[in-house]
Design a protein around this nucleic acid. Structure first.
Lengths: 144, 144
DNA sequence: GCCCTATCGTAGGGACAACCAACGAATTCG
DNA sequence: CGAATTCGTTGGTTGTCCCTACGATAGGGC
């Protein structure tokens, strides 16, 4: 039997918004599956990575730097704190804030999840040369 | 007082999966807002466009060509049929299938929504030259 | 013709990301 | 000091994707 499945219509397939959606879905699935082996999710890993890189900071700063909704940040920090991957302590200089700091266990996990994330991204961009991947990253950064 | 907001950590910001997610979110928001002025949503517009381009076809074929879940397709076709933008009729040659056909009203609406979608995509890629945009489209198509 | 398998449309539910509105506590600014 | 703003938090909604399941129908092997 012939393959009579009609594939993505050209009108839609050439729209950046459509391609971005599909590519993001694939990336999300690949990275999600990879990180699942360490029992962590994308946003949690992103927060952990941001705390490690930017040092102790408030939840609001985290929300802004990662473009995550403050509401969602509460749940993420709750989860990470419950697993002792970071600490949340009231900021003595501004009692509205929580100072979020990565823990040694968080550092350790981050080493592994970063590798998993990198590998998933390598798979995601497997069809591209390193130069093309850099180009893609550059182009994406500019439309943000 | 200086701007002390920490911005996207480099470790995350250079991951294609992260950039794709953010860019897709922006594209989704822009296109969604644009199409909302015609009272239609992204997936509905995509289905309408696919039916117009590929001609009458079944819901399963639509689902595959657009990578939309069959369950979600049911709801979308329901909506579009309710607004008389397409017709859904049993296929006499295979009574399991529904033959989906775009209506004149659907064609007419599609003309407007395609323009809205194009304009939103132009805004999405406003920071890019036409060559760069074509490059982005090409790179995205290759990682799919 | 008859079983077995596959497909189609439809329905249920759930995971996850993104976003919006509001509120008390605390801080900062005019 | 009073007003406006920020912060953390709780409450929702929406959209996309995934898995399961079921009756009806179709096709292949025998």
């Amino acid at each position: 039997m012939a393959d009579n499945t009609p594939y993505a219509p050209a009108r839609i397939r050439t729209l950046p918004s459509w391609l971005l959606g599909r590519a993001a879905a694939r990336g999300h699935r690949l990275v999600g599956e990879a990180l699942a082996t360490e029992g962590i999710r994308m946003m949690h890993h992103a927060v952990l990575s941001a705390v490690a890189e930017l040092g102790p900071l408030s939840q609001a700063e985290l929300s802004r730097s990662l473009a995550i909704d403050p509401k969602d940040m509460v749940a993420i920090v709750n989860d990470l704190q419950r697993e002792a991957l970071l600490t949340r302590a009231p900021d003595p200089r501004d009692r509205r804030k929580n100072t979020v700091t990565i823990s040694p266990a968080g550092q350790e996990l981050l080493l592994r999840t970063e590798q998993l994330g990198d590998r998933a991204n390598a798979e995601l961009t497997a069809a591209l040369t390193p130069e093309e991947r850099a180009q893609l990253v550059s182009l994406l950064a500019r439309i943000l």
